[in-house]
Amino acid sequence: MMRSVLFAVVIALPVIATAQDNSDKTGSIARTDPAGILSEQQVRDRLAGEGYTAIGSIERDTDGIWRTTAMKGDTMMSISVNPGGAIEDR
């Protein structure tokens, strides 16, 4: 009997895990962050470490790319930081 219950639990776990509600309060599907994606604070720290100042608000798009504006020297730039941490400015 115990073996049957244990087997049923093992079989049901993947089904239960995929049935979790990943929706936010607006009803859209919430994005879950895979391990290794930089947090907003890590992006700010990385940009500051590379000499960017006056870092604006940072938003992440659906591809996981962080976007913001920041000063580099006397020039205001549009900045993107990919999930791996590579910085691109324009």
Results as ranks from 00 to 15, higher is better:
1 M>V: 06
1 M>W: 05
4 S>G: 02
6 L>A: 14
7 F>Y: 08
8 A>P: 03
8 A>S: 14
9 V>S: 02
10 V>H: 00
11 I>G: 00
13 L>A: 12
15 V>P: 01
15 V>K: 00
16 I>Q: 04
19 A>S: 15
20 Q>S: 09
21 D>E: 11
25 K>L: 05
26 T>N: 09
27 G>P: 07
27 G>D: 01
29 I>W: 02
31 R>V: 13
31 R>T: 14
31 R>A: 11
35 A>T: 08
36 G>E: 07
37 I>K: 07
37 I>Y: 09
37 I>R: 12
39 S>N: 04
40 E>H: 00
40 E>I: 03
41 Q>F: 03
42 Q>P: 03
43 V>S: 02
43 V>W: 05
44 R>M: 06
45 D>V: 03
45 D>G: 02
46 R>C: 02
47 L>V: 00
49 G>E: 01
52 Y>H: 04
52 Y>W: 09
53 T>K: 10
54 A>R: 13
55 I>W: 13
55 I>F: 13
55 I>G: 08
56 G>N: 14
57 S>G: 12
58 I>P: 12
58 I>R: 11
59 E>H: 14
59 E>R: 11
61 D>T: 08
62 T>E: 10
66 W>K: 05
68 T>E: 06
68 T>A: 09
68 T>P: 03
69 T>S: 15
70 A>L: 07
70 A>D: 07
71 M>P: 05
72 K>A: 13
73 G>Q: 11
74 D>P: 00
74 D>F: 09
79 I>Q: 15
81 V>H: 14
82 N>F: 04
82 N>E: 13
84 G>H: 11
87 I>P: 04
